[in-house]
Structure formats: structure tokens, C-alpha cells
Design a binder for these strands. Structure first.
Length: 426
DNA sequence: TCTGGGGTCCTAGGACCC
DNA sequence: TCTGGGGTCCTAGGACCC
């Protein structure tokens, strides 16, 4: 039965990073897998088997290392080159099957299925096609709004066996049934804090939230939660955004592979982060007017003296020139650095972005010289052809001793021919 | 020894203007 | 004696997301 009722699907990859690793290690089909954050810090992805073992998201690796060994869990450092490339492949397959897509994150996309005769059949087809073409298992949730599609997807995971990974909540009876058995904290957009607030008002399930008075929610909390409640009722408040708008700020922040006390190595790290952020800036055709640089010591060790500081540096004119951005970031760093602390992390944040060619607000304001444009153009062209950091500013080192720890990284199977040397089959 | 990285949106409150 | 009001812009901080 065809209908013009609005239908949105949320398609997400199951245990995405773990699934990516498994595609190239079919011998691990039934083995529990976890993937670690940068620096092998904490667990950020778990295969279904690993979840079953009770391994929690975000738990520090060093705390559970022994257990993982004992249980025979296979551990990977994160390999973003691989995940990014696999993500593109998954999205391409989805785009070939549905009228309109919004890529929402590395492992999720919304699709507009309005007017599709049988959404559940299409959902199952998406699932089968993505699995066949990429090896990645996905779940599909369908609803009248984005929030309901998210809820449907959550249900597909929760009742994986019964649903086969596809849930359609367009039918109001089924929708209400699911709303009643879902905790309000499991609703998209309701975090820990909001859950506490809502619980205090006696709002415990998604159904309670959907039934709550929208105006009261707005007055007591914010328009955000009001929209969530309306969406749960089936009133669309969030549109599908097919064209990604340029980022309003760009950030590069990382923990160092080890603590740094001296200013010089921190300068090197900040230069590298500033260079990376500038690349992202140019990739979306933007310029920035201000740079914020911040550093901090470790946050968890109670014996370690704590210190954190940041500063915003104005640039003389909007620029995308790595050299000036590095210069500003280092000047800021010298300003905030303090002797006698063990620093663990630095962050470079590019703020006040504008699109290249956008009119400056001051007719007499200085603009970036053409030479900058040319040098950066050459830099990016060479690195696009020969790989990141083939050409780089003198301050940026490739294998610094403060660099990231990643001792269990898989090969970049899909993006580096020189690393494609073993694929195990059983 | 050891605890990620990258974003968005909203709100409150201060500064400033007329 | 007596001390406006409305509007805008900016910033910091909170909350949330994956």
C-alpha cells in the first residue's frame, strides 16, 4: 500500500569499528573483539560477543587488560583510515537504494523513505545489500520522524532476534507499544542529566515524555526537549539535511603518547595539531579569524598537580595558511605554558570560520595575500597525490616520541596497497 | 605507567547602544 | 527626591551526540 506519510529510516552499522576489523579477519567471526581509542586509552567499540562479556563502553584499557587476555578477546588500536574508507563504501550502497540520504556520522545515516510502497521490505533490502557489498551488518529503524526512526533502530538492536534487525514504527499501535517499554533515557536527545530531571517529574518512559505537556517542557527546560517530545508524538521538528553545511569550528585535540613537561616538544605537538586543523579548514573551503589553543595535565591521577588553560588568539586577517595558524597557536602556547607540570593533552580550535570569498565586513580590512593561496594550494595538491605529510612545515615532525601509542593496529587494507599483505581465511 | 576526539545547539548574563 | 527599558551581540558554559 503506497502512502505519502512521511517516513524516515535510520540505518546504522552494528559495532562499526569492530565489524570493520572483522571484515578483514574472517577467522574472528565468532571471537569477541574490542577497539581502543587513540593512545590505546579506552574501549570505544565492542563486538556483540564482547558486549555479552560485560565489557563496558569507555572503560580504560589498562584496567581490563588482564580480563581481556583471559577471555580471549582480540584487541585492536583504532584505524581511522580503514573505518573512514569502509564508511564511504557503506554510504555509497545506501545512497544507491534510497531517494535521499543524510550522512549523520561515520556509521549512521538517515534516509527519506516517504512514498516508498513497503518500507520494511526496503529496509531488509538495504540490510542485505550493505552486508553483501561491504561485509558490514547494519540495523534499520523506520518512523515518522527522526527521533522515532532512532527509537525504531534502538528497538531493532534490542530485539535483534525477533526483528531481524529491521523495525518499522509507522504503525501507531506498534509505535505506542514500543514507547511504553522504552526508558526515557534511551530516547535520542535525552542524556543523563535530562533523565534525572525528567525522572523527578515522574517521566520515566518514552511514552511519558511523548504525553508530557510541550509548553511545560519548554518553560522548565528548553526548546530542545520540547522538540524531542513532539517528535515522539509523530510531529516532525527535525528535517533531513542532505547537504552537509560547513563546520562552524574545527578542532584538533589529542593526548600525547607520554606526559610532556618541557615547552619545546609541546610546541612541536601544537604545530602538528595546528597543521592538521588547517588542512581540514581548507578542505571545506573556509578561512578562520581566531585560533584557540589550550593545554592540560592529566585529569585522573589524584597525585598529579592539575593545570589547564586556554587562550584565544586573533589573526590579523581571515586566513587558511598553515604557517600563520601555527605561528598564532605557538604564540598562544608560550603565553599559557607553565613550568613544572606534566602535560597530557593539547587542543587547537579554529573559530570564527567564514567561507572563502565571502565578503569581509570591513571594506578596508586586510585580506590574505595571493601568495598564501598559492603555497597552500601546492601543499594540498602534493599531499593529496602522495599522502598526508609528504610535504609539511618544518616544525611538524612525522614520528615524534610524544606521538600516539597504537600497538595493536590492523593494516590499512582498503587504502594502502603496501599494507595489503595478509588476509586470513579459515 | 595507563582514562578519546570531534562536533552542535541552547541559554543566561554582561556589555553596549539608543 | 531619585536611578528606564528594549534591543542586539557576544561569550562562557552546559548538555547532548557519535
Amino acid at each position: 500500500m503506497a502512502s505519502t506519510e512521511r517516513a524516515i529510516a535510520l540505518i546504522d552499522c552494528n559495532s562499526f569499528y569492530a565489524s570493520c576489523e572483522r571484515v578483514f579477519r574472517p577467522d574472528l567471526r565468532r571471537t569477541p573483539i574490542v577497539v581502543l581509542s587513540n593512545n590505546d586509552g579506552c574501549v570505544i567499540a565492542r563486538s556483540a560477543e564482547a558486549k555479552q562479556l560485560g565489557i563496558k563502553m569507555g572503560v580504560p584499557y589498562f584496567q581490563i587488560r588482564r580480563d581481556l587476555e583471559r577471555w580471549g578477546v582480540v584487541v585492536f588500536s583504532s584505524n581511522y583510515a580503514l573505518y573512514g574508507d569502509m564508511s564511504e563504501r557503506v554510504m555509497t550502497v545506501i545512497e544507491s537504494l534510497v531517494p535521499a540520504v543524510e550522512v549523520y556520522s561515520i556509521d549512521e545515516s538517515f534516509a527519506d523513505l516517504t512514498g516508498v510502497p513497503d518500507v520494511e521490505v526496503l529496509g531488509r533490502r538495504i540490510r542485505a545489500e550493505v552486508l553483501r557489498s561491504t561485509g558490514i551488518p547494519v540495523g534499520v529503524g523506520i518512523g515518522g520522524t527522526k527521533t522515532l526512526a532512532k527509537l525504531a533502530n534502538h528497538s531493532a538492536k534490542r530485539w535483534q532476534k525477533q526483528t531481524g534487525g529491521v523495525v518499522d514504527l509507522l504503525d501507531p499501535v506498534r509505535r505506542d507499544k514500543v514507547l511504553r517499554v522504552t526508558d526515557v533515557g534511551d530516547v535520542w536527545g535525552v542524556g543523563r542529566r535530562m533523565t534525572e530531571h525528567l525522572n523527578r517529574l515522574g517521566i520515566r518512559t518514552a511514552w511519558d515524555l511523548a504525553s508530557a505537556d510541550a509548553w511545560t517542557l519548554r518553560k522548565k527546560f528548553s526548546v530542545v526537549i520540547e522538540k524531542t517530545a513532539r517528535e515522539l508524538r509523530g510531529t516532525p521538528c527535525l528535517d533531513l539535511e542532505e547537504v552537509a553545511s560547513p563546520k562552524q569550528e574545527i578542532c584538533c585535540s589529542r593526548m600525547f603518547g607520554k606526559r610532556l613537561r618541557e615547552l619545546e616538544p609541546i610546541k612541536d605537538a601544537v604545530a602538528a595539531y595546528a597543521a592538521r586543523a588547517s588542512e581540514k579548514l581548507r578542505a571545506q573551503q573556509s578561512m578562520c579569524k581566531r585560533v584557540r589553543i589550550s593545554i592540560r595535565t592529566g585529569m585522573f591521577n589524584p597525585d598529579e598537580p592539575k593545570f589547564a588553560k586556554g587562550v584565544v588568539c586573533e589573526l590579523p586577517y581571515p586566513t587558511n595558511d598553515t604557517r600563520y595558524i601555527i605561528r598564532a597557536a605557538i604564540a598562544g602556547l608560550e603565553h599559557i605554558y607553565r613550568d613544572g607540570f606534566s602535560f597530557s593533552k593539547a587542543e587547537v580550535l579554529l573559530m570564527d570560520l567564514c567561507q572563502r570569498g565571502e565578503y569581509t565586513d570591513d571594506l578596508f580590512a586586510q585580506t590574505q595575500p595571493a601568495a598564501s593561496e598559492r603555497v597552500m594550494g601546492v601543499l594540498d595538491a602534493i599531499n593529496a597525490k602522495w599522502g598526508r605529510n609528504t610535504l609539511r612545515p618544518g616544525r611538524v615532525t612525522t614520528a615524534p616520541d610524544w606521538g600516539m601509542r597504537r600497538e595493536m593496529m590492523s593494516q590499512s587494507f582498503t587504502t594502502r596497497l603496501d599494507q595489503l599483505w595478509v588476509v586470513r581465511c579459515n
